[in-house]
Design a binder for these strands. Structure first.
Lengths: 250, 250
DNA sequence: AGAATAGTGTCTTTCAGACACTATTTG
DNA sequence: CAAATAGTGTCTGAAAGACACTATTCT
């Protein structure tokens, strides 16, 4: 692992974020409109370069990839890093993309992150992005760079992890009903699980949800029973899992 | 995404490989002894810098992360890239590690790969490594950098993917018996699945293995029936999954 | 023969999914 | 009341795991 920086073409490392939320029952992804070349005007995932430098004493300074992802998300949403709503965001690393020609300017390695949130505000155009918006995942045409592939990977990760982790609770507020949780699965998977079976199954998984012994203040718009209110439990893995309806094809 | 390379501290991107194989019924990982500082003499995962440059016409040249991983693996094992035995190796990206101080020399982002192989040769000390060897995963003390954490992540990935993918077939030759497959699960998981149930379960998963309608030339050392021979099927996901015995704790 | 290994039968329990049903609330 | 929503009961079939058993081949 000998190394001389000058022997190598400079490489850059960026983070790109697949930020997902649910609005009006549909899964949305945060996209920015690029304000400069390349791909000027094209929609892209929010992201940016990872910062590192040396301080006056020559010590290495910088941010980790996780920190860079939080910073980028904060910039796009206009929230201060450390804001309570940002701390409730689920953030996890997806994968690193390295095609030599993925950015025409230079060698860029992009580390993709998946961010899941319940209630992030409408984005503000930040820094180098001309505009930003939550876009339904079905209406994302012609993304810049290889961001379509990254988005697809992010969606698949989210869909898979709903099965065996309590990740769905990241999409709802701190208190929620079983129906709200089911709406998350419906939005992410594209199929609405059977209400009765879903209800029983969620309650049967130890540590998935905790009953708060309260009910909603009123039923549905046009009638209906009031529902009990739950919060997320302490399970990190769901046993048994909540399987995708299409997950059991044989 | 504006960028000026000179405004940033140079960063390097490396690949580090968690290469696993099974020897004498035990899971082994490929480790090298570092031939230079930092961590001189310490064991480490094989790895190295990703190469990129510009050609005479100024065009960007270089290798992808996947290509770099294959190259590193080839260097350590002494096989030519493209060798048949290398093409049978399962290679997948694990995660990218970014702690600012993980390498004292400079900012280094390490993209970790998981490599699973049946029959790689004894490693040859390559380039910057003083020595290399297959080490039982339980006997890996004090690895360099953050390689202990990377190894742990790689092991967990391998253990988890044995459940729901036909990855176990990567650890055996092109033709194998059910018992050999079971030995893979035993080595990776640390628990030997029940032979009878395992047998029936493997055969019940569509596309996991294909019966070659032949039997081994002889039974066990001290007696025993000859076993049928199978090859890997075309399934990419196992339905139903082969669950870890401890995977169902509630 | 007896030990060792491969492979099968069968039972119990758990869980997914279908579907019908009860419980409650709203207009 | 009727419609809508929450939540339960019950059945069927798939599959996991325990365990006993049969089948075959070695010394």
């Amino acid at each position: 692992m000998d190394y001389d920086p000058r022997a190598y073409e400079p490489a850059a490392v960026t983070v790109d974020i697949v930020a997902l939320t649910i609005r009006d029952g549909a899964l949305h992804v945060l996209l920015v409109e690029r304000g400069e070349e390349p791909f000027l005007g094209r929609l892209a995932l929010p992201g940016g370069f990872v910062r590192s430098s040396r301080d006056a004493a020559g010590r290495l300074r910088g941010e980790t990839l996780d920190q860079a992802a939080v910073r980028e998300l904060a910039e796009e949403t206009g929230l201060r890093p450390g804001h309570a709503r940002l701390r409730r965001v689920h953030l996890e690393q997806l994968a690193t993309y390295s095609a030599v020609d993925r950015d025409p300017r230079m060698r860029v390695f992009s580390v993709a992150y998946l961010a899941l949130a319940a209630d992030l505000p409408d984005p503000v155009a930040g820094g180098d992005a001309a505009a930003a918006a939550w876009v339904p995942v079905g209406e994302t045409r012609r993304l810049a760079f290889d961001h379509a592939a990254i988005l697809a990977d992010g969606l698949e990760r989210a869909r898979a992890k709903l099965e065996y982790t309590p990740l769905a609770t990241s999409f709802v507020g701190p208190e929620f009903t079983i129906a709200e949780l089911r709406a998350v699965y419906a939005a992410v998977w594209g199929v609405d699980p059977h209400a009765g079976n879903f209800h029983r199954k969620v309650l049967s998984v130890p540590g998935f949800v905790v009953d708060l012994d309260t009910v909603t203040s009123r039923g549905g718009e046009r009638g209906g029973r009031r529902s009990r209110i739950y919060k997320a439990g302490d399970a990190t893995l769901l046993h048994p899992a909540i399987l995708r309806p299409s997950g059991g094809e044989s």
